[in-house]
Design a binder for these strands. Structure first.
Length: 849
RNA sequence: GCGGACGUGGCGAAACCGGUAGACGCAGCAGACUUAAAAUCUGCUUCCCUGUCAGGGAGUGCGGGUUCGAGUCCCGCCGUCCGCACCA
């Protein structure tokens, strides 16, 4: 009688065995083809959560499969270890961010090891250690030397809670991405990376990323936000004042009825100095929120400056100049011309201030149709536009731009939504920016020989703001150039800089420089990158930029860091709650405290029912989380891994449930039983009753090999799982035979990437040589992929009426004869001949009656 | 508002290029084994109608269309989710 699979014993045994055999160490010098499999490295927050488990399990299946298929696999793990939570912990609990972070890393590393991931731990790195961030400082200086880094004073997004600057990408609905605090505008001197220099490249490069989700590419495309149009100059009538505007619709210039400036535009500010009413209006505009709801609710408002500008195509036309709340200083030139007929915002504005609305583009036959409440943005021919009349929109655009350029008042241009990446953070727990400010020499880079600039350990968090600023000695240094007393830069780099090149350091990590070009290029680009879609813009755009920047300065001949990207869904869980009455938030209960009963659920403590809520993202506040440690102890790593791959397609959310993990556990036991029964049978009877090969089972087996391989290749793990269930079902139902014994052995190899401990343990039990981790991936025999009989479906008028088995490859005539002779067909046709017969060989026959 | 994804049994989902809808799992029902329970095994399980066998009809969000044949293609709606957003 088979025993239960002892997951605890097997996990310990095989994790140790893989470790001592160095099974997952990637060899830079291997002659085998290389495969780089990477999951987004975690922030060491304290504990692994179940979402990490799903993410890393997917990567592990790919890594293990590739390895079995003969690839030299690089599958590393590390820690995105700088960031605010460490400082928050320091402030709340009076401990050091470094100590807190390193303890978390130790705990999470142990958790990952318990899951049996095929990781090359010899390449582990943590971004908070000088042997990582020191090299980052070197790269920063290289980019600085190449002119890709600059410093300027500018209006920045200031997070008043985290007391630091945020990049545009990190401001969501006007709030800090981490703190959720409403972001303020401040003027500060900041370091910027010239990501806008790469806007075109980053946009064009997207089209080469065939193995990325379309969705992510679109999001990046929108974020980069390329707009082609014309920039031109308005002259203010009776004054020397001029200002530029940008438009994507130069063709509609004759429809212009006003010009508008952003409240923050220099001209607006200047006018406001002598116009209190305008100053008040500008103040009012600034008070308005930037959140979604605020913007939707906000009315278009303007202030008539009394100025007017000269129409560039006809000096006789004058347009009034407004300061308007809907014009953004951050985009384009901070000023627009308004064409109400063909822009909804301009139309709303024009209606409010009774400005003329002149249609200048009309589709066929609608030239006389007036614009009511909706601006027309479609195609058509130009009207009311003198020399442009009758032209198509695109031709008119080109003509106006050409004229502007030849007359010297404007030119065709491209405007981007993308801004340069502000990387200065007024925080302690980050990479120190390797710069010294000297009274005489100005901004002086720290010489590379003096790197790393190491964070001081003795810092305090009792005063708000940047601890590096408050440190008594750290920032006081001699100028590297003249030796006079100078001041260190106390800002640190945005944490997203750390994650912009860690995949390169994984591939090559020499002591004396960031990476070795030749070695890194052997592995890069990452073949398969897996992580959450929440990084679709921030991390993935920055990493692409950083890679291209290194490429431009000749350090790396790689354009795109991630050839294949996969964004996996979240792990969700239903919620359990009780209402606390009007206006009070409901009380949530942990799944551990709840008993699931048929339809509902009860609280274990009092036996009374709780409400079962929707399946939503796991969160602490809703208490619908599960603790991987408990689950791991109860069910074992293989069952957890199996469940993470089952049921839901990997890009979709997966609902955690006790029933689900129970099912996964049962599968592990079934496979174990199959193997141990087979082992017993072999011992007892040897091959005495070795019967005939089982052709039917062999066919199922080889189809399974084919399908599972293809499914893993396409990351359709849920389908691979279903295939393996089918295979196990088929083996269980088959009588003992040499085929059956071989099928069990192949099954183990197919299951090994998903449930590696089980596979090793069963492999050993069956007396197979070596470890299954070193066994090659099974290959399907093409001869066994095709059946010699097929099922023919019989349709009458497209509806299924009957089906029957027949030898494969029967010709049309014979097939038709057989079909027409069948009882059901004869009955259905009632003696008439079908009007038409459609035959799809080996598939179906459709009779049209 | 713009962009995108999705909509299939009680649930998670399969269905290659337009060719037998619901594989596989979960839950449920019935049975076997057992003193009993657990575990395990076997069978059933889209819905409706007639019913012993068997047969008939409907069915992939809704309404049309193309086709011998549509979950799959086209047009128009409805709904859910995600991203962006006063971007000129």
């Amino acid at each position: 009688m088979a025993t239960k699979f002892d997951h605890a014993g097997a996990e310990q045994r095989w994790q140790q065995a893989w470790d001592s055999a160095q099974s997952f160490a990637a060899d830079d010098n291997s002659p085998r083809p290389k495969a780089y499999v990477l999951e987004m490295f975690p922030y060491p927050s304290g504990r692994i959560h179940i979402g990490h488990v799903r993410n890393y399990t997917m990567g592990d299946v790919i890594a293990r499969t590739r390895r079995a298929q003969g690839f030299e696999v690089l599958h590393p793990m590390g820690w995105d270890a700088f960031g605010m939570p460490a400082e928050n912990a320091a402030m709340e609990r009076g401990i050091h961010p470094g100590g807190w972070t390193r303890e978390n890393i130790a705990a999470m590393r142990a958790q990952l090891k318990r899951l049996g991931f095929a990781l090359d731990w010899s390449r582990e790195l943590a971004t908070c250690e000088p042997d990582y961030y020191g090299h980052e400082q070197a790269l920063f200086l290289d980019l600085l030397a190449a002119g890709l880094v600059y410093r300027k004073e500018s209006a920045v997004n200031w997070d008043p809670v985290d007391m630091t600057v945020l990049a545009n990408e990190q401001v969501i609905d006007g709030r800090g991405w981490r703190s959720g605090a409403i972001v303020e505008r401040r003027r500060l001197s900041q370091w910027f990376l010239k990501i806008t220099d790469f806007a075109d490249e980053l946009l064009d490069g997207l089209s080469t990323l065939d193995d990325w989700p379309e969705k992510v590419r679109l999001m990046q495309e929108n974020w980069i936000g390329k707009s082609q149009g014309m920039r031109f100059t308005f002259a203010v009538a009776g004054s020397e004042t001029r200002f530029d505007v940008f438009t994507t619709r130069p063709d509609t210039l004759f429809g212009a009825s006003f010009a508008a400036l952003a409240p923050d535009h220099p001209i607006s500010r200047e006018l406001a100095e002598s116009d209190p009413a305008l100053a008040a209006f500008i103040a009012e505009c600034r008070a308005g929120g930037t959140a979604t709801a605020d913007i939707e609710a906000q009315e278009k408002k303007g202030y008539d400056t009394g100025l007017s500008v000269v129409h560039p195509l006809d000096p006789g036309i004058r347009l009034p100049v407004f300061v308007a709340n809907f014009v953004l200083m951050e985009y384009g030139t901070g000023a627009i011309f308004g064409c109400p007929a063909h822009d909804q915002r301009d139309l709303d504005f024009a209606r409010k201030y009774q400005l003329p609305v002149t249609r200048v583009v009309a589709p066929e036959g609608e030239a006389a149709t007036p614009i009511q409440t909706e601006a027309y943005t479609g195609p058509g021919k130009l009207i009311n536009s003198r020399f442009l009349d009758g032209m198509e929109v695109e031709a008119a655009k080109a003509l106006v731009i050409g004229r502007a350029e030849s007359e010297g008042w404007g030119q065709g241009t491209t405007v981007w939504r993308l801004r340069d990446w502000g990387v200065s953070r007024q925080r302690y727990w980050g990479t120190p920016i390797p710069i010294v400010h000297c009274g005489d020499c100005g901004v002086v880079p720290v010489p590379k020989a003096q790197l790393p600039v190491v964070l001081p350990d003795d810092v305090t968090f009792d005063i708000p703001g940047n601890p590096l600023d408050h440190h008594p000695t750290w920032k006081h240094v001699g100028c590297p150039q003249c030796g006079k007393p100078a001041r260190r830069e106390t800002d640190t780099l945005d944490t997203f800089v750390n994650s912009s090149w860690y995949f390169i350091r994984f591939a090559s990590a020499p002591k004396d420089r960031p990476f070795d070009k030749a070695v890194a290029e052997q592995w890069l680009p990452v073949g398969q990158y897996i992580g959450g879609v929440e990084h679709a813009i921030l991390h993935l755009l920055y990493a692409r930029f950083w890679t291209r920047a290194l490429n431009r300065i000749g350090q790396l001949d790689i354009a795109e860091p991630f050839a294949g990207l996969f964004t996996q869904g979240m792990v969700t869980h239903e919620t359990y709650s009780r209402d606390q009455g009007e206006g009070v938030a409901p009380l949530y209960f942990s799944p551990d405290d709840v008993e699931r009963t048929g339809h509902g659920a009860t609280l274990k403590a009092d036996g009374a029912p709780v409400e079962v809520g929707r399946v939503i993202k796991m969160s602490k506040s809703k208490k619908n989380t599960v603790d991987p440690d408990t689950i791991l102890a109860t069910y074992g790593a293989d069952a957890v891994r199996w469940f993470m791959l089952s049921d839901s397609p990997p890009e979709r959310d997966l609902a955690w449930s006790v029933a689900g993990i129970d099912g996964a556990w049962r599968f592990v036991q079934r496979v174990w039983r199959l193997a141990s029964d087979a082992a017993e049978a072999t011992d007892a009877t040897a091959s005495a009753d070795a019967s005939e090969p089982d052709l039917k089972l062999a066919r199922v087996l080889h189809r399974s090999i084919e399908a599972v391989t293809a499914d893993i290749d396409r990351l359709q793990f849920n389908k691979a799982v279903a295939r393996l269930y089918e295979l196990v079902n088929a083996i269980e139902r088959s009588p003992a035979s040499p085929t059956r014994a071989a099928a069990i052995e192949v099954l183990l190899r197919l299951v090994a990437p998903m449930a590696p401990h089980l596979a090793e343990e069963a492999w050993a039990l069956l007396g197979q040589p070596g470890m299954i981790v070193d066994a090659p991936w099974p290959v399907a025999d093409p001869a066994l992929l095709v059946d010699d009989t097929v099922t023919i479906a019989i349709q009458i008028n497209g509806k299924l009426k009957d089906s029957f088995e027949i030898a494969k490859g029967v010709d049309r005539g014979a097939l038709e004869a057989q079909v027409l002779a069948r009882d059901k067909v004869v009955r259905a046709l009632e003696g008439r001949a079908p009007r038409k017969v459609i035959i799809v060989p080996d598939r179906l026959v459709n009779l049209v009656a």
